[in-house]
Design a protein around this nucleic acid. Sequence first.
DNA 1: CGCCAGGGTCTCG
DNA 2: CGAGACCATGGC
Length: 274
Amino acid sequence: MSSYRTQHLDGPISLDLTLRSGQVFHWECLKDGSLAGLIGDRFVKVSERAGILETDRKDAEIVRHYFALNHPLEEIYEAFPADPLSQESLEMCRGLRILRQPRWECLATFITSSMKQVAHIRAMSLAIRKSFGRPVGKSFAYPGPEELARADEALLRACGLGYRAPHLIATARRIADGGIDLEALSSLETADLRRALTGLPGVGVKVANCVLLFAYERLDAVPIDVWIHRVLLAMRRGRGGTASQLASYARRRLGPYAGYVQQYLFHRARVLAK
DNA sequence: CGCCAGGGTCTCG
DNA sequence: CGAGACCATGGC
């Protein structure tokens, strides 16, 4: 990246935390320390200098949007809960941003995510791209719903999906058939949008909340996976651990940017577990 | 080898 | 409604 063509983008960010905190699965570290990946079907290289994002000038707008550089981090941090766990996660993850991912790509990867570790989701995502996606340079775009709607289930299982393969195909078909328009859904209120998403095969409340948070900018959505489940249990010190109790507790306690808080708590828990 | 992973769906009480 | 069985796969 020659500097005269490099754009320095506003808004502090930690690229490492943002791209390796389990919200997106296809970015790769290059030897020079920069990161390369596709935003939709555009190949982009980004790097970070003193907490500021740099990219090629021609990619500035799409990068600014994808990395959500206009999210008001200081305001979000002001709204973090005062309890020790939330504050520790804030200190540990400062600069982590919730991305604005393409809708279908985000929905599809999280359909494949159930009962899989982050490393596996990454492997499946790359295999799906290579097997079904359009080549873009040395990378592959994530295949659209039309392409996955006519995918062979056995070939999809060969990407490591197991029982998730028919779910992904079924949801791809609903969208390719025109029954569901993921872009049009963005005008729905969060509760209605969540209902629409959970109506799709392979999409329960947890996956729907991931998509709400990572692709529809619903920053109060809280995905509760096994890690966050444990964190919320610890915060509640033994009082009630049913799914609905924890969800209601998260809504009540994590504030207007609950999704951000959740992502910081998630990353902290995983880092400390290693 | 057994255990766990950013769960969803179906059944049964 | 809430709990439990079942579902594939791979890293450790």
